[in-house]
Nucleic acid binder design. Structure first.
Lengths: 217, 217
DNA sequence: GGTGATAAGATGGTATACCATAATACCGAA
DNA sequence: TTCGGTATTATGGTATACCATCTTATCACC
């Protein structure tokens, strides 16, 4: 693994974890110190993150962590809705026994993460579960797209997961997705994932608008 | 505009125009000469293109122009189908008179481009038309996604447009999309754009498989 | 003559030093 | 207090040096 890859992961993780706030400037040389790499690496990393949409570059100002408004977040949730519905549908059509086993394992991990309450575990387990679905449906490009979009709303997702683990309705909805796939019922799988995403989007909207109105004070 | 932006556009254009073949190595130092910039700029540009998916990086080998197989291209067409259907639908719902005027203008340009037969004009006009649709539907994030995906199949699209302008069925299908939007008929708009895309994907498949079987000889 | 080892070159990866320019903050004079 | 200039800071951009690795070509030895 190259230095750049490591720097990339660290920065991405830092942004997702909220270590850098949205709108924060990303000054190159301090970043070099923090990451322990040279400017070349930092600059190339920033270029990559810029293309990913996690970082914006203000002309003659430099890079900042991309700002997130509900307008854009909503669009992202809508796109996810389309892609994930399609993936769940196909997944339910195609899933063989081996696939179901793998998905079941991901579900078990997810259950564990829900009960542990660790937002980070929850985050990873959720990602794994979705990855499984896209994997089975054979839509790796769509998965790439979803992941990239998720990066842009990662902080929002972390917040959403954080609140949702209190009401455990979230897990139940995911279980429904699983059982629809397990019984190879595309319709039900699509419906279940739509329900789940709609709910997630609603929570996200509440949280984000609350945060924005607070920061305007 | 920074040097990087220029280098980025040049490289992207060169890849799309087929000046660099898929699988070609992108050796840094020669690129510096060709673009007239330093290695740093070239490297950052490559990083960006890597994130865009236009360039792959082989470990210990360096960057190459991303290879395109039908497997991935098909997935991209499927994603476009979802996103563009949704956009056309929303566009047909929302389009006001002013929007329709703009779209009509884009259509007129497209007609011109079709009759001129310049693949490049056709490419731009098509892009403009679609941009208009996404614009009206208010889905700028989805447009970003589509554009990025299109970058990855750009060569394929250019080939497709090149053959399609011979049969002018392509323009007629686009006209149908327009008229569906013009009459605010979401169902028809969705159907029209699906037809158009399916056709494009079919042509693309034919061309790509033909090319691949030829290069295997 | 064929095979394997070694040396040379090419390439990627990393680090640093340097310059020009733009923005900004600060400070002194009117 | 305000205006204007200066110093600082950060960026964009360039050049270069260094090392590791991979490829390739050469050459000696079997």
């Amino acid at each position: 693994m190259t230095l750049r890859d490591m720097a990339l992961e660290k920065m991405r993780a830092a942004i997702i974890a909220g270590h850098f706030q949205s709108g924060d400037r990303l000054v190159e040389r301090p970043l070099c110190d923090q990451l322990g790499v040279s400017r070349s690496v930092v600059r190339e990393t920033i270029r990559y993150l810029e293309a990913e949409g996690l970082v914006e570059i203000l002309p003659n100002k430099g890079p900042i962590v991309a700002k997130l408004d509900w307008e854009n977040a909503q669009q992202i949730y809508e796109i996810r809705m389309l892609l994930e519905t399609s993936a769940a549908q196909k997944c339910a059509e195609l899933a063989k026994d081996g696939d179901k086993k793998k998905l079941g394992k991901a579900l078990a991990q997810l259950k564990l993460a829900y009960s542990s309450g660790e937002t980070n575990d929850l985050f990873e387990a959720t990602t794994l579960f979705y990855q499984c679905i896209f994997d089975i449906s054979g839509q790796n490009v769509a998965w790439e797209v979803v992941q990239r979009l998720n990066g842009r709303i990662s902080r929002l997702r972390a917040m959403t997961l954080g609140t949702r683990d209190r009401h455990d309705a979230g897990y139940k909805r995911i279980e429904k997705i699983y059982s629809a796939i397990e019984t190879n019922d595309p319709q039900a799988a699509a419906a279940a994932i739509q329900l789940h995403l709609t709910e997630a989007a609603n929570i996200a909207k509440t949280l984000l608008t609350a945060e924005l109105s607070k920061s305007e004070k």
